[in-house]
């Protein structure tokens, strides 16, 4: 037997923080999973694996949804599960086609809730133009699950042999963010903790395949895309900077954020750069095509607030640096575990 690669002086058990999308999650994935499953497709560590079968270039991905509460302002676990997998395929440059779904249901879940979830999955699938073609159901004893967990996997066909990869990123490429960040995380947090704000903040859950299609039609020079989910914008940019071996510079003033989200973050001591999203992507684009791509995004319902937020640079490879609103520069690090609210 191979000994566990997580060093003894570190945590001996899995913590919630290992699921936070930050450094601990990365450590878990790298040391436990990638080290053993190790193959060239997995090692790319993109949102989807992309491979050829016969003459077709396909994208394949999977994601599990354990959000609590299962109904939250702006959505529920069902549409999240469809949109999330659709988005992982879309940002690989693929047209999402077929989804599978697995339900782990806790004994006692009201049928009415399950029905609502299924209806919204159907609606989300119709909206994204995908079919849910296979599935699985398990029921666990009360107390052994949390109402319902949903897994979805998806297959998509890659557009025109597109090659979306961090390896394409070069100094000078511009970085486009598709809209305002932080809505989903704050919506969940306020539902979970019973925080009430003057205006309700809604989750941004949305299928991004239409947006991606518009972008791809506007330019052949989209080099890299990622949907920014758990761990927030900072984690996505740090992942790309480190796998591409390039530096990234962004400008704080260019990053679109809802005023309510800024306010909620101020109150809770959180940083919007680390808050989860469920309907946003970042794209790395050749500077000559950036205006074309940006315009195509602004003309789409899920990209109205898109902005160019920064660029790829030669300096500080693997690091993300931000020009702050007061004109100084600082490093934007990847979150370590979960973002914990401060005392004061």
């Amino acid at each position: 037997m191979i000994t566990c690669p997580i060093p003894k002086n570190e945590y001996e058990k899995v913590l919630l923080a290992h699921g936070g999308g930050g450094k601990l999650t990365h450590q878990l994935i790298e040391k436990i999973f990638v080290s053993q499953f190790n193959n060239e497709l997995l090692n790319e560590q993109n949102d989807s694996a992309v491979f050829n079968i016969e003459n077709a270039k396909l994208a394949f991905t999977t994601d599990s949804y354990v959000v609590q509460p299962i109904f939250f302002p702006g959505g529920n676990i069902g549409e999240l599960a469809v949109n999330g997998t659709v988005n992982d395929l879309a940002v690989a440059g693929a047209k999402p086609l077929y989804l599978s779904t697995g339900f782990i249901i806790e004994e006692g879940l009201p049928f009415e809730d399950l029905w609502k979830i299924v209806l919204s999955m159907k609606e989300a699938a119709d909206k994204a133009g995908v079919k849910i073609v296979t599935g699985d159901t398990k029921v666990v004893e009360r107390g052994k699950g949390d109402k319902v967990f949903i897994n979805t996997s998806g297959i998509g066909a890659v557009y025109n042999n597109l090659y979306i990869s961090p390896r394409n990123c070069k100094a000078g490429d511009l970085i486009i963010l598709s809209g305002k960040i932080g809505d989903h995380g704050i919506a969940i947090m306020s539902a979970r903790e019973g925080l009430e704000f003057e205006t309700e903040i809604l989750s941004d859950t949305a299928p991004l395949n239409g947006l991606v299609e518009a972008m791809i039609n506007s330019s052949k020079n989209i080099k890299m895309m990622r949907d920014i989910t758990r761990g927030g914008l900072s984690s996505s940019l740090n992942e790309i900077a480190s796998s591409a071996g390039v530096g990234i510079e962004i400008e704080e003033d260019k990053i679109p954020i809802n005023e309510q989200v800024i306010g909620a973050c101020e109150i809770l001591g959180l940083d919007p750069l680390y808050i989860a999203n469920e309907g946003k992507l970042v794209a790395f684009v050749n500077p000559n095509d950036s205006e074309k791509v940006l315009n195509s995004m602004k003309n789409h319902e899920f990209g109205i607030d898109a902005e160019i937020i920064g660029e790829v640079v030669e300096d500080h490879p693997g690091r993300v640096v931000m020009k702050t609103s007061i004109g100084s520069k600082r490093i934007v690090d990847m979150i370590s575990g979960e973002q914990l609210p401060r005392i004061c």
Binding site: Y11, K13, L15, L16, A17, G337, L340, P341, R342, I343
Partner: peptide, 16 residues
């Protein structure tokens, strides 16, 4: 409060 969860005691922290 959240940020006390990860403060190391002599052996464990509250997260553990």
């Amino acid at each position: 409060y959240g940020d006390m969860m990860r403060v190391p005691g002599s052996k464990d922290d509250l997260l553990t």
